[in-house]
Nucleic acid binder design. Structure first.
Length: 114
DNA sequence: TCCATGACATCCA
DNA sequence: CTGGATGCCATGG
């Protein structure tokens, strides 16, 4: 297997791990931070392929609309919402309220990797 | 190698 | 707001 391509997944994991408590980010933001804004789909794939759910808070990663599109991939349909609410994030109708307020942009917080 | 799918994003009707 | 279509990259049959 080519390690170069596999690095992309690890990159996603690292960024997600750096997401602070009570904050959320989007697939596109992570992809953009990695310099592949168009590869947002691959970011989601990395979440699905993630082995360490304990270290990788995938529940803090949602789509650009703040919608919990990936909640179906968790154990319970409400598990993802429960985890977010547990962090003080209000979720209504599978959508994060004040998403912009809880939004955590790696490019803005961590700064550009270059 | 080609085709289909996916936890996305963007555009257009 | 909703739905369809397109683009992107990676994985699997």
């Amino acid at each position: 297997m080519d390690n170069d391509k596999a690095h992309f997944f690890d990159r996603v994991y690292e960024v997600v791990k750096q997401v602070p408590f009570g904050r959320v980010t989007s697939y596109g933001a992570i992809a953009n931070y990695l310099g592949a804004a168009k590869s947002a789909r691959v970011v989601g794939w990395a979440m699905n392929n993630v082995s360490d759910r304990e270290t990788v808070p995938a529940h803090r990663v949602v789509n650009r609309n703040g919608l919990l599109t990936g909640k179906h991939h968790f154990e319970g349909t409400l598990l993802m919402q429960q985890l977010l609410e547990n962090e003080g994030i209000m979720v209504k109708n599978d959508q994060i309220l004040n998403f912009k307020k809880h939004f955590w942009d790696p490019l803005k917080e961590l700064g550009e990797p270059f």
